[in-house]
Design a protein around this nucleic acid. Structure first.
Lengths: 121, 121
DNA sequence: CGTTCATATTCTCGAACAGGTATATTCGCT
DNA sequence: AGCGAATATACCTGTTCGAGAATATGAACG
């Protein structure tokens, strides 16, 4: 997933998909990429699980897949404490989530975080 | 910065640095990397602004630089909205969205997605 | 001053990657 | 069925990347 996000064009595609599903041609035009290049980038994004494809006649609509972003957020969480160690609600909330995953504490808010192993033990 | 984060070894280094500044040798040993390789990765991380160096005699302590993580978080912010709404009612809404995108049915999840004219009716 | 430890840099090689062109596939339309 | 639009794949090419070996810098210490 990280290598998929490493490319600026792919991030641009994701940014466009933020506004809703789009066909390849539109992404290609908006990102100023050739159509084959766009298709290849979309393939990488799809194999990384970042987007999913919705077949629509001869078109293929691509849509964001939110799950990997949650994974990214989970990775970022420990670092978030660093850059702003004194957040009002957010930081405490995240700390709570972190603690919850360790001691099984008040698990009432984001219990859907425990989806699959991130491959990063 | 993204390309710096794309490498698993570099992410491992950052993960180690979470526990505090460390000299190169320690990182090298912990990540099972050769010393030159570690130095090269650290150079990339440094040029990406992700770590900073603290010279200490003939040693060089590397420490996390929190700022770029904030940048990452800012980039992630728009997507966070997405997965939050998805996690909210995971299974049912995914099915609903799926159906909606096939028959153009009740667009209940589209709160503020269609803000800009995509030029694609 | 020379030795040794810790780190950085250079070089080279093989693999991976991005972009371009040409071609294949699939669906809708007439 | 055949044509055309939309998308995917294959092939080629120049570039980048990461690992490894050899070497250079630089500081402590005898």
């Amino acid at each position: 997933m990280w290598s998929a996000l490493a490319d600026p064009n792919r991030r641009a595609i994701l940014h466009l998909l933020l506004e809703g599903p789009r066909p390849v041609g539109e992404l290609s035009e908006a990102c100023d990429l050739s159509q084959p290049s766009t298709s290849k980038h979309l393939r990488v994004l799809r194999e990384a699980g970042l987007v999913r494809v919705i077949p629509d006649a001869q078109r293929r609509l691509y849509a964001l897949e939110p799950a990997p972003m949650a994974e990214l957020d989970a990775w970022l969480a420990p670092y978030r404490r660093l850059w702003n160690s004194s957040l009002d609600a957010l930081g405490r909330h995240l700390d709570a989530v972190d603690a919850e995953q360790h001691d099984g504490g008040p698990a009432q808010r984001r219990r859907s975080d425990e989806q699959k192993g991130t491959g990063k033990p």
